[in-house]
């Protein structure tokens, strides 16, 4: 069975069916991207896997365990975490305090260990560690969100729209960092509107449209497919 295995997942908001039975697989050490237009259900998918939203049907298996009914804190302890859409840093806490909270479930030793790793990956965060998170720029907050998520040594890290609202140069930096994190041994599930850059670093991809997976293929295939190009990659 795949490392992360989502089977026939349905999610409703009241009477609205946001996800109508989707299947996704992510193997260990892969980078997999989920693309789709606004309102397709990408964030719903991420939030449901992370336990922030309850599913209405289907199954989610992670590392051999059924996590469908688990609450978020438990899921995080199992090694699956999310860097959410819109960053969601703790604005009144300092950069350091934000990062420190990421290791809430870990021992002090593990925390100090991961702190080194995160500061190494994100030197800017180290620089600004006493600054209050609400005053950081968009790009810095994104790095903070990712760095914070790394602190619990996740086996699988999900990222929801990490490039949203960021300048192209910063976006490139972020994606380079994602590749580095993956090389350090973390499986990545990525959700992106900026399909081109995301697929460029991924092995495989899924296309989500109005709550259903309409296409599942290798990243190269998706990058070169006419259909996908026109719909999601903005033409040539």
């Amino acid at each position: 069975m795949a490392f992360l295995n989502i089977e026939n997942l349905t999610v409703n908001y009241g009477n609205i069916k946001a996800l109508k039975g989707i299947d996704i697989e992510v193997e260990k050490n892969e980078i997999v991207t989920l693309i789709g237009s606004n309102g397709a259900g990408k964030t719903t998918t991420m939030n449901t896997i992370a336990g922030l939203k309850r599913s209405s049907g289907g199954r989610i298996m992670f590392d051999g365990e059924d996590i469908t009914q688990m609450g978020t804190p438990q899921i995080v302890k199992k090694g699956l975490t999310l860097s959410p859409e819109g960053r969601q840093v703790f604005p009144k806490l300092s950069v350091f305090e934000n990062i420190e909270l990421g290791a809430y479930t870990r021992s002090k030793k593990e925390r100090d260990e991961m702190l080194e790793v995160v500061y190494d990956l994100f030197p800017k965060l180290k620089e600004r560690r006493s600054q209050s998170a609400g005053t950081l720029s968009g790009g810095e907050q994104q790095m903070l969100a990712v760095g914070r998520a790394l602190m619990c040594k996740p086996k699988l890290l999900m990222l929801d729209e990490p490039s949203l609202g960021l300048a192209p140069l910063i976006v490139k930096e972020i994606f380079d960092l994602i590749v580095r994190i993956n090389k350090l041994g973390t499986t990545i599930l990525l959700v992106e509107q900026n399909a081109r850059m995301a697929l460029a670093i991924s092995q495989r991809g899924y296309v989500l449209e109005t709550g259903k997976i309409i296409l599942k293929a290798d990243a190269d295939y998706l990058l070169n497919s006419e259909e996908v190009k026109n719909a999601y990659l903005g033409g040539v």
Partner: peptide
């Protein structure tokens, strides 16, 4: 304090 600022993000911290 984390909960007071962002409940969902706090959950994600475990």
């Amino acid at each position: 304090r984390a909960v007071s600022q962002n409940m969902d993000a706090a959950k994600l911290m475990g």
